[in-house]
Every structure is written in structure tokens, then in C-alpha cells.
Computed example of a mutant assay.
Amino acid sequence: MQDEDKIKLGISIGDINGIGCEVILKTFEDPRMLEFCTPIIYASNKTIAFQKKELGIDVTYHGIQNASKALDGKINVVNVWKEVPMVKFGESNEEGGKYAIKSLRAAVESLKNNEIDALVTAPINKTNIQADDFKFPGHTDFLAQELQGESLMFMVTEDLKIGLLTDHVAVKDAPSAINAILIRNKVRTIEKSLRMDFRVRAPKIALLGINPHSGDNGVIGKEDDEVLKPVIKEMSNAGHLVFGPYSADSFFGSDAYKNFDAVLAAYHDQGLIPFKTLSFGRGVNYTAGLSKVRTSPDHGTAFEIAGQGKADHSSFKEAVFAALQIFKNRTEYEELTENPLQKQKVRR
């Protein structure tokens, strides 16, 4: 019997030459996972059959032509392609990028059409996905185009949440990309996500400095004094719980991050190095600020171990649970927002 209330979770397979299929199949090899959601993998029967045989993973699945045919209690595989792509584990090639994008596009289309409730994406390779019809540095930028909202790369665990002012931008270009409008937008996106997706009533956010020691009063750069500080003061005066800029070198080692609901880093490695150091294998990459829920594991294609059965699926499993919980939190938030009387009842 179909459970109409169970969340339909779409899954894109990522690069077929990487560890994407492995971590997906290992996650749902545990039959208890099917009690939490109805998984719908966007690939093909033959691709999944090849992967499970090569990796020695004992799962059964149900092949379907579209998400509407998904069965509860089964691993469902939407047949996005009929041909049999050549899998060369550990190799970054055009074939891997081509089918990663086919899977992603099909899954996102289902998400936009409400055929699935949330999406978890397995890792892609940023080099081989580039094509005439796909010129994005990664998932986040593509999803920002396809789904409504202000996208934010938000790395999350239960205890640590780090957003990025700039994500896949060269370090030399990051300072010039940061301006007052960007800061305001990212802070508001984090605040909204914390309230709507993580049940934080009064979000408290820390901003990290752009320069070492936040510029040391202009001695090591003026961006912190001229760009960050005025916006933080303006937003603080307007009632936002925004603080900083903090010197990034000591912020995490001193456990200062534990005093905030989220941290906003100036650029990619400033946020992701401490995040992965503190929570690798438990972390989740969440694209906040969009009209739909999308998560992914906190690692890449791991070509160096692909096809060897060595991949740890912990982060992918966490990404699944995060997507389910965020979808539930958001649904409840929207219901309460639309029905103030019910909101009052809940508060009692």
C-alpha cells in the first residue's frame, strides 16, 4: 500500500566514474532507510545494475519511467536514458560529465513539477560537466537558475552551520565581489533559512573578516573597515542579530562559533576548511534560500577510491536525513505562516 504522506526523495547519481552510485546504494542497502522516505534515483536500470554488481552491494530496485510510478518501500530508479554508458572508475571524462548532467536535469525537472519533495545530489566533477548547454561551476549556481530564490551555499551539521559570501570564486576575486548588497542578501537568506528550515526563532549570526585579523584597523587591508563593519552596524541597528567581523584564524579554535546559530565566511576555504576539519563525514552541503530543498554530501567524486568499495557513505546518509528534516520543518513553518490561528494554538 502506498504511503501518501511519506516524503518522495529524488536522487541524482553524480559522476558515474566516481563514488556517487556507491554511497547511494550503500545508504539504501539498509532496508530501514525505506521507512523514512521513498527514494527515487535518476539514472537507468542498467547503470544501477552494473554499479551494484561491480561494487558487490546487495540491493533490489524497481525500474520506472517517471516519478509518479514510484512504489513505497522500494528503491525506485527512473530510466532517464536507454543506452549503456561506459563506466571507467576513477577517470574524469566527458562520459562521466554527460550522464551526471542528464541525471541532474531530470531530477530538477521532477522537483520543479512537484513529482518529488526534495533532492539529494551525489558529487559531480566541475571540469567534465562543462558543455555548451551547461556552463556552471557546480550544483549551486545551476539550482539558483532553475529554482526561485537567493541561493546560499550552507554547510550544516547539528552544531555548526557555515554560509559563504562568495563560493566558487577565485581567492583573488573574492574581496572585490563582496559589497553591501551581497552582505545584506546573504545575511537575510541565512536568517530566513534558520527560521524556516532549522526552527531557530531569533538567529544570531557571526561574520568573519575578509583580511587576516579583520584588517588590523586597516593595516592589512581596508575591506573590513570600509565594507563589512558599516553593513554590520546598519543591520544591527535595524534589529538583526549580526556580529563581527571576527578574525577567522582564532574563531573556530577558541570555540567562539558555538555562541552563534550560523557563521558567514567571506570566501570558500575560509569557511570549508574549518567546517570539514570539525565535521567531515557528518557534514551536509545545503543550498539554502531556494523554493525547494536540496542537500548533498560534504565530499567530492573521490576518483582515487572509486570502484574499490571503500567509500564511506556517512555524509550521504546525513544528507538524506537533513533533506527529510528540512522539508518537514519548512512544510510546518509554511503551514503555520499561512494559518495564524493554528500558530496561536501551537504556542499555547
Rank of each mutant, 00 (worst) to 15 (best):
K6L: 13
K8Y: 11
K26D: 08
D30M: 06
R32A: 11
I41A: 01
K46F: 09
E54I: 12
D58A: 12
D58Y: 04
Y61G: 05
Y61S: 00
Y61K: 04
H62D: 03
S68W: 11
K69A: 14
G73V: 09
V77Q: 09
N79H: 11
V80C: 07
K82G: 12
K82A: 13
N93A: 00
G97F: 05
Y99S: 02
E109L: 15
E109K: 14
A131V: 05
F154L: 11
V156R: 00
T157R: 05
I162G: 04
G163P: 01
L164F: 06
L164C: 06
H168K: 11
K172S: 13
P175I: 01
R184C: 11
E191M: 08
F198M: 14
N211V: 00
N211Q: 05
G215K: 03
N217H: 09
N217C: 01
N217M: 02
G218Q: 01
I220A: 00
D224S: 08
D224I: 08
M235T: 05
Y246Q: 10
Y246C: 10
S250I: 15
V263C: 02
Y267L: 05
T277S: 10
T295A: 10
S296A: 14
S296K: 10
G307S: 06
G309M: 09
K310I: 10
S314Q: 06
S315E: 06
R330D: 08
E332G: 07
T337V: 13
E338S: 15
N339Y: 11
